[in-house]
Amino acid sequence: MSTTGYNESLLDHEAREADKPAARRRARRRPEPFTVASHIVVTLFGLFCLIPLWMIIAGSFTDETVLARQGYSLFPNPFSLAAYELLFSGQSLLNGYVASLFITLVGTILSVSSTASLAWVIARRLPWISRPLTVFAYVPMLFHGGLVPLYLLVTQVLSLSNSWFAVILPILLAPFLVFITVSFFRQLPEEILDAARIDGAGELRIFFQIVLPLSKPILAVLGLFYAVTYWNEWFMALLFVSDPDKYPLQLILQNLIANVTNATSLPGATAAQAAAPVYQLRFAMTVLTVGPILLAYPFAQRFFVKGITLGATKG
């Protein structure tokens, strides 16, 4: 586990190193070595993530010849919008945004509500119910029927071809997230629930009026993870949506990048396609994928602040 060792030794080392200057800076309060170390480690890891992010953004604006020469770029020079022009030309992306927004919004709402309610039933450890349900929800994490049966199910049994629900339904529940939620629910302070029961609240009321409001952080995690999944989903759309006007954004981008990277050696491609900026396009595609999510993430973060204090027990 070299990474762990790395982090830990870095932690100790940096903590010792950083102790002195940090102490001088914040002389008013005794600085906690661990807090200082945390700032340093998080910052270092942040840089470890930020530098590639910057390279990708800068690369997406850099002329292809420079990228082909060195593979990256720290400053977009010469500046070029070629990749974005290509991405935004051709098929209108507006329809794609509409489709993606619909799939993400409707899908996330359906997913979060069904995941949370199923997880609560499992978390309650009901005799004869919770344990079988655990197994029932776990098995699909390991066993998959494969593509062909799913295709037959959606197109022939459910007749969902060309519908956005054909994209949402097959990935509606992630067993992984069900169990993460179960584990969170089981950490909720029991006193609150007991208090409610003494007040005569029914199981459904407890769930909707006490458990859910207390669980905002995990609901935010669920919302974030599901939204990310739906926003990035293109394979289900490839399988089940055949009308190009209904393609979600990611499928349009996916098609474009597949065709452009193949265009160089494909008969039938125009010369302009053969000269498409391959590196630049891959970077620009990452930016377009990440952009909206990074904008949405701070909203989800609002719920990660300390939500539960025991003050809530009084209620």
């Binding site: 069904s114 309610s117 039933v121 929800a137």
Partner: peptide
Amino acid sequence: LLLLAVPGIAWF
């Protein structure tokens, strides 16, 4: 309580 699990069970 089992009612809450119905959508999940149906989906699975």
